[in-house]
Design a protein around this nucleic acid. Structure first.
Lengths: 211, 211, 211, 211
DNA sequence: CCGTAATCGAGACGGTACGTCCCGTCTTCGC
DNA sequence: GCGAAGACGGGACGTACCGTCTCGATTACGG
């Protein structure tokens, strides 16, 4: 992303004339606003410039494409997609079920679905650099999920040798996929998904059962 | 599909010159050919028309957009995406592992990845009608997988009350997602994915174990 | 005209289904109707076909172009453009003045102006065959005018050696030109036009004078 | 002309990149060049753009149609149509005869005929704004002719009360009409035309006679 | 009274040009 | 001396008609 040019974590002095932070933020905000009412394809650079009160040149100076702008919006949390918190009551199965029920409500709102699609389409624009960003997308960060699983692992509740990331994907990715296709899964489907994976993950005999 | 629209049940006389099946097929073939070397975004209707030796109007007469053409190509199997066969040796876990190893090799070829992306982007074009098609896409038909699971279910190997479709998604969707982002997962990740889900699916004590 | 192609003077048998005279006339009528509300450029063959309830092929079978249809409409009097009659009271100057006053009223109606333009544009389509038709167009037939002038010539009122056709053009063509540009000339302009030409035509001393 | 539209009397600051005069002229030149070898109908905006090395959008930004471009070419003298000079020897009749003999040679050249047709067809496109331009067209400027007539008027050679413009049209318009139909008139026709009008114009007894 | 030949309406076909939209780049001028 | 305004060359869009080409369904003769 163009914006990474000066993103040094050590906060160096920043040489040269600094970019206009007002314009920068105006572009991100305008893009967020527009994406709420239009798809990625319908979004145009000219519309962003006009909506942001910024010249096209300013956009092209800092981002190399529409996809880059959209990805920055998404990945820096500018779009403020609220994640459902993951509870931690000590009962892994119950926590995951609580979480997925929340996701069913939260993630399938129209704006979120639109945002997710824009993010995916932007990420698939063929640019090799953007693919990586797509994978890191905090939006569907299975991080929360993976973290909870790791907590259970540390508590000795899980079978040994399982890949936590793979397990998190087994639950998280199907959810994302339904989100992209706009078809919210049923509650029972979702619960079954969690149940199967959690069951397969846990040490036999340990933990609660769904039935 | 657009092409079937006029084959209506009322079966009226069909006046005028009939649709040219040659042109129809030429469009699908040309699209397939072009998608092998270009992304969905790079693909243009004019290029399809030119490559197919067909007029643009003929394309717009039968399909309402580029997305519709691409979806017909994909969903009618015109692109001939070869699925990895699902073995059925009686050992569910072993069969699924065999299958996923094959998928790692087959599905992550460049052309297949490109096709999958095109299919997804086409399906996400915002058109409500196409979303449904996207879900039915035989490309990532978890059908083969789901079928094998149902076979095991009939054999009484599975726990009761689990949702087969959800379980198939738990394995299949993560695979598709990696395919879209272009990052082939490791063998151990894949095997762990299968192991967790199959374990969670099977009646305790039944079947083989990975370790 | 295309319609004359099969009008062989030897009157051959002409096998097969004969030309539908109904269709022929429907085309001419439809064209006339459409030209009343649209310019030559706006007129399309498809619109004619549709308006006439005839297939495009039928038009192209009998006329080689839109221009040919329009010219046939015009030159066969299908459009029924009414000419102003030329009086013959014995007073050439007075007769011509009466005639031109009538023309100012009649010829500059919107429909007539539109028809004249269509005729000219159709005639100028570059086709060499149509040019000739343009010259013969009865619409602006100076014939009536020329005839009256010749009558005066026979009566010995005119100077000798003058070209009657040229004189008729001197009055008629400026009128047509104003018609084409849509700017109706003033009465005094028109009367002066007639006066100058008639004066120049008549034997000195003969006839009445305008002032 | 379209190009002068924004040079308004309010003379506002004119922000942004200014219009490229090079492109403007390139369009006019390309149009002139193309009109030398093709008719108005054959001329396409895309061909102009391509020939001028200019984008279609640039043409549509400054002219509202092909007709507008052609009219600007014609009316600003870009096509450099050479007018035959009008002599002034003191003998009106002789001068006019000299002039019309020159016109017979000059005006009926192929390129000039083509240009005149293009100008007329462009002017008749139905746009009310362009009609006025058509009338002012310097191409068939009877201005030269009218000027000479006015000179004679000032010299007291003409009858009083005649409309000079009408008289100029009586000679000029028939010439133009023959030009449009592509049928060059004979010398005697032309001379008779001049003779009749000049005779009708001149004070009785004044000036020379043709015979 | 049957078959051959040419017509008819309908409408799809390969094309060409249209006029619009947006891309990404490039001036100019005002702050 | 940046940056908004906006013109530029380019190129694809989706539409409109062009003139041609099947279709199946009518007519008329001529055998």
């Amino acid at each position: 992303m163009a914006s990474e040019a000066q993103r040094s974590d050590t906060a160096e002095p920043r040489r040269g004339r600094p970019r206009s932070e007002a314009s920068h933020q105006a572009v991100l905000d305008a893009t967020t606003r527009l994406l709420r009412v239009s798809s990625y394809e319908e979004l145009t650079v000219e519309a962003i410039a006009s909506e942001a009160g910024v010249s096209k040149q300013t956009i092209y100076r800092w981002w190399k494409s529409k996809a880059a702008v959209v990805l920055e919006v998404m990945l820096t949390g500018n779009a403020e997609i609220e994640l459902v918190p993951m509870p931690s009551t000590g009962d892994l199965r119950a926590d995951c079920l609580t979480w997925i029920r929340g996701m069913l409500v939260e993630a399938f709102r129209d704006t979120h679905v639109g945002m997710a699609r824009s993010l995916v389409v932007a990420g698939l624009q063929g640019d090799p650099g953007t693919e990586r960003l797509l994978q890191q997308a905090s939006m569907w960060d299975h991080g929360l999920l993976a973290e909870r699983l790791r907590e259970a692992e540390r508590a000795g509740e899980l079978r040994e040798g399982v890949d936590i990331a793979a397990a998190a994907s087994a639950i998280g990715d199907p959810l994302i996929f339904r989100m992209l296709t706009g078809s919210a899964p049923s509650l029972s489907w979702s619960e079954s998904l969690v149940d199967v994976v959690v069951t397969g993950l846990m040490r036999p005999g340990a933990g609660s059962s769904i039935n």
